[in-house]
Design a protein around this nucleic acid. Structure first.
Length: 482
RNA sequence: GCCCCCAUCGACUAGCGGCCCAGGUCACCACUCUUUCAAGGUGGUAGCGCCGGUUCGAUUCCGGCUGGGGGCGCCA
């Protein structure tokens, strides 16, 4: 049975790069009818926050992932938070200690650094100083009241990582320093906790970012020291920003939360993330979740890093948005309306109109935010005219045109698109006016916008009363300013 | 300083020795459609990092170089 895990540390919102890692794990598990596990790596007690854990879980769910075991749903291999499994790490570390595969180290950061500098920085880091201390040296450190860390005794040997994506990668373990597995506060380091958890949770495949490839020999060594076979490894390429450095805040939105708040759909993000570093055999790009699960394979993953391209994400978003029924788009965009001051019951009242507007504007929508921007003036009583644009239409000729159109609209019966169009076109013809000369100004007066649905859709959806009122208001405004 | 990974259009990628004077998608540009903004349609610009091998033949295999990324923490 395939068992994979996504193991975020709750030190921030879910990063899109991590979301991609989670997604690949999910796809791999689903494809192989395996289990997908969420584990919270909160051993960095300084930076870990409960709120972040909750937000990460929430965003993973929003993305459309689900898991079989995790801190929120439990499972047979729990608990699923590392801070709740401390006894396990302590148990395994004392075993390594008693077998001589690990040892206590009393060196301070300063001492290690000092010795490092004196070596002219020919290498890096710790010099295995405490590897073979005499009893009296140990006694002296203890007398000084120092609290030790536990370090892993790294053997001199070759370690081969048989990576599913990259093939065999060979490391010379001798070039590694004896690394810390238990901190002086008796909490495991990442390298130790992952191994113990992957071991005890019976993880079969470790799918993670390439940034962990260089650390994998450490993990394998610990598995071996404990007498177990390591799981399979697959190191996926990293997600970079446009400047080819790690995707970070400088590059703009980096968390799935931010994209969600900008009006992106989960389906679009899901699909886009899958396309980063993976491609299907026939180069298909648009996938449903189910198709993705069927098509996905680790072997088809690209080895080179990928740049996160918001433009392509946006394109997918327009596609998914367009494919949704207007009623669903309405529901999804409620939070965005609320942000601009509408409340839910107002919106329910205007639901019919909003959905109709969505119908005629759907192909223009890029994000859920656009829904509010493109429909707001249909439901608000008053609108504002951009003074600069308005200026152009503040003259007697336009005043005459607008007031005549007001009368025409007032007379249209029934107030429907085709009748409205006929009436206005007829007006243009009899007055010998080009349609463009009338349509554009009229759109502006009625909506305050220079973009929107077709003019006659606009008028019908606005309704007779609103149209007349807006024209009159505009004319009144004009008189005031003259 | 040491170690590891990677290398096809601006971006994501296809290519697994001849089918490739390199295909698709996004972006971009042009044209078209059009009452606005879009969308759509049509077309286009643009790429195998460099140098050596191997081979009858290299984008594809090997080596080096260069470039990019990552790791070497009592962060994860």
């Amino acid at each position: 049975m395939v068992r994979v895990r996504f193991a975020p540390s709750p030190t921030g919102y879910l990063h899109v790069g991590n979301a991609r890692t989670a997604l690949f794990n999910y796809l791999f598990a689903s494809k192989n009818f395996g289990r997908f596990i969420i584990r919270i790596e909160d051993t960095d007690t300084e930076r870990s926050k409960k709120e972040y854990e909750e937000s990460i879980i929430e965003d993973l769910k929003w993305l459309g992932l689900s898991w079989d075991e995790g801190p929120d749903v439990g499972g047979p291999f729990g608990p699923y938070r590392q801070t709740e499994r401390l006894h396990l790490y302590r148990e395994y570390s004392s075993r390594l200690l008693s077998e001589g595969k690990a040892y206590r180290c009393w060196c301070t950061k300063e001492e290690i650094e000092k010795r490092h500098l004196s070596r002219h920085q020919q290498d890096s880091g710790y010099d295995n100083y405490c590897r073979n201390l005499s009893d009296s040296q140990i006694a002296r450190f203890e007398a000084e009241g120092r609290t030790p860390v536990i370090r892993f005794r790294v053997p001199e040997k070759k370690v081969v990582v048989n990576d599913i994506i990259r093939g065999p990668v060979t490391f010379e373990a001798g070039t590694l320093n004896d690394f810390v597995i238990m901190k002086s506060n008796n909490i495991p380091t990442f390298h130790f906790a992952v191994v113990i958890d992957d071991l005890t949770m019976q993880i079969t495949h470790v799918i993670r970012g390439e940034d962990h490839l260089s650390n994998t020999p450490k993990h394998i060594l610990i598995f071996e020291a404990l007498g177990y076979n390591p799981p399979e490894f697959a190191h996926m390429s990293m997600t970079l920003g446009p400047d080819r450095t790690r995707l970070s805040k400088r590059h703009g939105a980096t968390s799935v939360r931010q994209y969600r708040e900008k009006g992106y759909l989960a389906e679009a993000m899901f699909n886009y993330l899958a396309l980063l570093g993976w491609s299907s055999k026939n180069n298909q790009e648009i996938f449903s979740k189910q198709q993705l699960i069927e098509e996905f394979s680790l072997q088809a993953c690209n080895k080179s890093n990928a740049i996160f391209d918001p433009a392509k994400l946006l394109w997918l978003n327009t596609l998914y948005l367009r494919s949704k029924p207007s009623s669903e788009i309405f529901e999804l965009s409620i939070p965005f309306f609320e942000k601009t001051g509408y409340n839910k019951s107002d919106l329910e009242q205007h639901r019919k109109v909003i959905e109709k507007v969505i119908d005629v504007e759907k192909e223009k929508l890029k994000t859920l935010q656009d829904v509010q921007e493109r429909t707001g003036y249909f439901i608000s009583e008053t609108i504002l005219w951009n003074p600069e644009v308005a200026e152009k239409f503040k003259n007697p000729e336009f005043a005459k045109i607008f007031s005549e159109i007001r009368d025409i609209l007032n007379a249209v019966q029934p107030f429907e698109k085709s009748h409205i169009e006929a009436a206005i076109r007829n007006f243009c013809e009899t007055k010998n006016l080009k349609t463009g000369e009338v349509f554009h100004p009229l759109r502006f007066v009625l909506s305050g916008q220079t973009k929107g649905p077709g003019l006659f859709d606009l008028i019908e959806l606005l309704g007779k009363q609103r149209c007349i009122k807006r024209i009159e208001n505009f004319l009144g405004l004009k008189r005031h300013n003259l």
